[in-house]
Each structure stands twice: as C-alpha cells, then as structure tokens.
C-alpha cells in the first residue's frame, strides 16, 4: 500500500512537471524574431523571469532623416529618455501566456507617437501572430499581422 502511495505521488509529480514543461513550451512559441506587416522593423521576443518581452533588433531605416543620426525614442513621454536608441528598444512588455495560443496582460509601445497601448497576442499558426493593441477595451484597438523570421542558412 505504501509502495503504491509513493508511486502515485511520483507519477503525479511527473505529470505535473511535464504538463508545466508543456505549458512553458507552448508559451515559448512566442520566442523568436517577428516582422510587423509594415515591414519597417524586426522584433525579437525573449523571455525574462517568466514573462515575454520584445525588442527592436533591426530597422529598415535606422537613420533619422532630420538628425542624420541613428533613430532614437524621440517621442518618449519622459524627456530624459528621448535619446534612447530605437534599436534595442523594448516595444512589447510583460506578456504572460494564458494558454490556447494567447498571451495577454502586456503592452505595446508605438514609437511614432510615444503612446503605450494594452496588447493581446494570438498565435494564428506557428509562424503568424495577430497582435491587437487597444485602449482600455479591446474594441478601441487595431490588429496587425506579424510573421516569424528565421535564419534558414544557419539551420542547415
């Protein structure tokens, strides 16, 4: 009886652990490099302390035509951060995997106007994301389609 109990506890433990791993792997499908539909930037999404964050890693036009220098976050509401380089800027923050291919509780920042919007991300398929930025209610928002980018040469 005691042996059965121990076995049951071990099996339950393994089940719990593997299901947690499964959940993590599902959530980690968001990790990677993505391109918004306007094709102006690449964003790399990584995981930090259990939440998902996305930073700009590539800009199609990295130089500001007015200053002739690399683009910075000139619209940041905090005046002291207006010179933070856009390359590396974290546009997506604090996403938590909710299951069923959806990440929520996060925000998306629009460097074009310095506004931060609520955001929800849905995995349409392994290589396509529906990203909806909104204000308060999801009704007041807009959905964009992002595509996954990979380094095929390196994979070979």
């Amino acid at each position: 009886m005691k042996k059965f109990k121990t076995l049951a506890i071990i099996l339950a433990g393994i089940f719990l652990f593997t299901s947690m791993i499964g959940e993590t792997e599902e959530g980690d499908k968001l990790i990677g490099v993505w391109e918004p539909s306007n094709k102006k930037i690449y964003l790399k999404i990584d995981k930090i302390s259990g939440k998902y964050y996305g930073k700009i890693v590539w800009l199609r036009e990295p130089i500001d035509p007015v200053t002739g220098k690399p683009k910075t976050d000139k619209n940041n509401p905090d005046e002291s951060l207006k010179d933070v380089p856009l390359k590396g800027f974290r546009m997506l923050k604090d996403f938590v995997y909710k299951g069923d291919g959806e990440w929520a509780d996060g925000t998306i920042y629009d460097p074009q106007n310095g506004s931060t919007y609520n955001c929800v991300i849905k995995l349409r398929d392994d290589n396509t994301l529906d990203i909806r930025g909104y204000i308060g209610l999801k009704t007041f928002g807009r959905t964009d389609v992002w595509k996954r980018l990979v380094n095929k040469k390196k994979k070979k």
Partner: peptide
C-alpha cells in the same frame, strides 16, 4: 538561430 538579423527569411511566407 536569431542572431544575425540581416540574413533572416520568412519561416513560411511574407505578410
């Protein structure tokens, strides 16, 4: 895999 951003290609197709 995601280190060299200049050489990236679409995993399936472009949007």
């Amino acid at each position: 895999d995601y280190s060299i951003y200049d050489d990236l290609e679409y995993a399936d197709e472009s949007s």
